[in-house]
Design a protein around this nucleic acid. Structure first.
Length: 530
RNA sequence: CGGGGUGUAGCUCAGCUUGGUAGAGCGCUUGCUUCGGGAGCAAGAGGCCGCAGGUUCAAAUCCUGUCACCCCGACCA
């Protein structure tokens, strides 16, 4: 990203009414656009701690709304919340071989429990760790093993099953490269952990929660997803099967938005989760785990935001309506403000998806245009301006975030209040439809290896576009594929393409693998991904 | 951890080749004028130039070391 370009665009913008509020645009430089949207919307910022982000109030409110909606869905499906330790004794962690192997490289480890004055590594006087722990503690990257230890105590009889637990927590994965919301060293998430008496029950649970995630993604986030199963190479370390929801971002790359794992008896063996069945026979439980994280916010940005900044799906928006009083004439200022506050109070009485319509009255003493653009960039669904002229006519001047910023219309106040719910729902629907159309346009059925290679191009190959940027080549490729780790590795190296999943839905369709010619019954989705 | 790059005002950067002790735009503060719209003019606040050594009369600038961050790989929700 050239800063020169950035600066000159910004200047141009100020002189002649910006073309777009975000520079660069999606077409010019998608990754940089993403960062700028996060910043302009005031969702989060980087911190002084390597790879860790500060989630700002607007972003955190979004997370709280995600939490509230999901939490209800979890409870409605019989789960209870609990909380387990942040620290996992290394020995617990080592119990499941594949699990350790999968996570070892990204673990943060606590080795000491005290500080004392001394000479630091850089030769300076300061505080140095003292009191080495007998056993190092791993900061949880995920909690299967520590929760398993509790489950082992809680489960003795088949009558104790199923055990359906969810935890809202932070986890740490020491990633090499991080991006706000999409991949940070510490992130917030929920992790469901359940134990069952039979394999069938555990599998039902795994798929039920996948369904919950898909429902949430589509109906709350307005983000269409494909439900599918991961191939062996993409599986969660220690799982028997991993299921996922995959979404297509606006740059046509895939984002894994949630996973649900069928763990078989692997972790039950590791943690000794055993029970006596009705006949008195002792068996190991069947467990599952499933999670979604603050990454969902990154998904929402990359699904809905545009070149003017964030676009929030109304059902999750921290606020739905901002009222901007036009109060530059002192003689009418108070009356306008009173009118706005009354309007806000009336809107706040309207129920909307588990809460009420949330309203901001932005009476800050800054310029009106500036104020408007800040809210556009934050993605608030509806903006209304109310000045003396509107007040006289008992109307408001309304603009919607899903339409152009100049498309404003005067609406009678009572009509506005009466229709706001419907307007928000219409926007929610529009966002979903738009995202789904984008995915469909960029999903292609491919029947030969040559076509596959042409679709994705070489690693890092981009399509030049008219805005001077380079778009990622490809999209979702639907191909007949007989899972084979070697092929997946080759495709990853040569084309940066991975098998996202084998979709669960859709009719079986006999065919032959485009790489090996082996017979197959379904198509798999391949894509570049985050 | 490999390859490349960057650390200068709150933000984005210029200055470094050819050493002489700090600049711009935005943002911020104040005033006037404008204003149903991301304004104009003027004044002002703000920086031990990442850190530590070295060379020099003199270092943001040269040398050495170090730390941090960014990009491209490997790894990943």
């Amino acid at each position: 990203m050239s800063n020169e370009k950035n600066a000159s665009n910004e200047k141009k913008g100020q002189a002649a009414a910006a073309q777009t509020a975000i520079t660069p645009t999606r077409a010019q430089d998608y990754p940089e656009w993403y960062q700028q949207v996060v910043r302009a919307a005031d969702l989060a910022e980087t911190s002084d701690v390597r790879g860790c982000m500060v989630i700002k109030p607007w972003g955190y409110a979004l997370w709280e709304n995600i939490q509230r909606s999901l939490d209800k869905m979890f409870k409605d499906t019989g789960h209870k919340n609990a909380y387990f330790p942040l620290f996992i004794p290394l020995s617990y962690f080592e119990k499941e071989a594949e699990h350790v192997e999968g996570f070892a490289k990204e673990c943060a480890v606590v080795t000491h429990h005290r500080l004392k004055p001394g000479v630091k590594a850089d030769g300076k006087q300061g505080l140095i760790p003292d009191g080495e722990l007998q056993e190092p503690l791993v900061v949880r990257p995920t909690s299967e093993t520590i929760i398993g230890a509790s489950f082992a105590k809680w489960v003795q009889s088949y009558r104790d099953l199923p055990l359906l637990i969810n935890q809202w927590a932070n986890v740490v994965r020491w990633e090499m490269r991080t991006r706000l919301f999409l991949r940070t060293a510490e992130f917030l998430w929920q992790e469901g952990h359940t134990a069952h008496a039979t394999s069938e029950e555990a599998m039902d649970e795994t798929l039920k929660m996948l369904e919950v995630y898909a429902d949430f993604a589509e109906n709350w986030m307005a983000m269409p997803v494909v439900k599918g199963e991961k191939t062996e190479g993409e599986r969660f370390p220690g799982a028997v099967n991993t299921y996922c929801i995959e979404a297509m971002m606006q740059d046509r790359k895939a984002l894994q938005a949630g996973t649900s794992h069928f763990l078989g008896q692997n972790f039950a063996h590791a943690s000794e989760i055993k029970f006596s069945d009705a006949e008195g026979k002792v068996s190991y439980a069947w467990t599952t785990s499933w999670g979604v994280s603050t990454r969902l916010i990154g998904g929402m940005i990359m699904t809905h935001a545009d070149d003017d900044g964030m676009v929030l799906p109304p059902r999750l928006a921290p606020s739905h309506v901002v009222i901007i009083p036009v109060t530059h004439k002192p003689e009418t200022a108070q009356a306008v403000l009173d009118y706005c506050n009354k309007l806000a109070a009336d809107l706040r009485k309207i129920p909307y998806f588990g809460r009420t319509i949330e309203v901001e009255v932005d009476n800050r003493d800054i310029r009106g245009g500036d104020k408007t653009w800040q809210w556009i960039k934050k993605g608030i669904p509806v903006r209304v301006e109310v000045g003396p002229r509107d007040m006289e006519q008992d109307s408001v001047f309304m603009a919607r975030r899903d339409r152009g910023h100049k498309e404003k219309q005067s609406v009678k106040r009572d009509e506005f209040v009466a229709t706001i719910h419907a307007v928000l729902e219409e926007m929610q629907g529009t966002l979903f439809a738009r995202a789904k159309a984008h995915r469909e346009q960029n999903t292609k059925r491919i029947d030969s290896r040559a076509e596959f290679e042409a679709f994705f191009g070489a690693r890092n190959e981009v399509e030049a576009n008219e805005s001077g940027g380079g778009a990622v080549k490809g999209g979702f490729a639907l191909v007949h594929y007989a899972p084979d780790r070697k092929i997946e590795e080759e495709l990853k190296t040569k084309f940066a393409v991975t098998c996202r999943c084998i979709p669960l839905e859709g009719a079986e369709e006999p065919g032959t693998c485009i790489f090996t010619g082996k017979p197959t019954t379904r198509r798999a989705i391949f894509a570049k991904s985050y």
